[in-house]
Amino acid sequence: MVCVAQDTCRGKAIEDPMLMKKVLELCDSKTEHLPGLLPFVPGMTVILTQNLAIELGLINGINGVFRQLVYEADSVSTDALSNTFPNNTQYVHRPLCELIEIARSKIECNLETL
């Protein structure tokens, strides 16, 4: 699964498929170092880059494990947006949230029960 950036131009979402593809192909150095396409693989390591809740242990630099991308069924496409990824890649537009397991946090929640 690859999460697609929600790019805007002059405050409005880019709707034109050709323009969207061109923007997604821009080098990260031209997009404030933000990727246009971000792959998510269950089990991959992630790192928080800012303090979210210090009292819960969700602090800058803590490691976690990506578990699941949550999204609406109609927000997925298989239209090839990049030659970098395999043909069976699913591109998720407007994900709702990502489930990240952070073992050293103070949150008492079991991801299996969500």
Rank of each mutant, 00 (worst) to 15 (best):
L48M: 11
V46H: 06
A103R: 14
D74P: 00
Q90R: 12
Q50H: 11
L111I: 13
E108A: 10
D74I: 04
P95E: 07
E25Q: 15
Y71L: 08
R67H: 10
P42G: 10
F66T: 10
I59C: 12
N63S: 15
C97F: 11
L111N: 10
Y91P: 00
I100N: 00
A73H: 12
C27F: 08
K30E: 14
C109I: 08
R67T: 02
P39Y: 12
H33C: 11
E98W: 12
F40D: 03
P42T: 09
A73L: 05
A53F: 07
E108R: 15
E25Y: 09
V76L: 03
T89S: 06
T45E: 11
L99Q: 01
L52P: 01
V92R: 14
F66M: 15
I102K: 04
R104L: 08
L96K: 06
T113W: 09
G43C: 09
S75W: 02
A80G: 08
Q90K: 15
P95Q: 07
G43Q: 12
T89V: 00
G64Y: 02
Q50V: 03
P86F: 05
G64N: 10
G57W: 05
D28H: 08
V70N: 14
N88S: 04
Y91M: 06
L111R: 12
A73M: 09
L56W: 05
A80D: 06
N83H: 05
H33F: 11
Q68H: 13
G36M: 10
I54K: 15
K106M: 04
L99T: 04
N110C: 13
C27Y: 14
H33Q: 14
S75E: 10
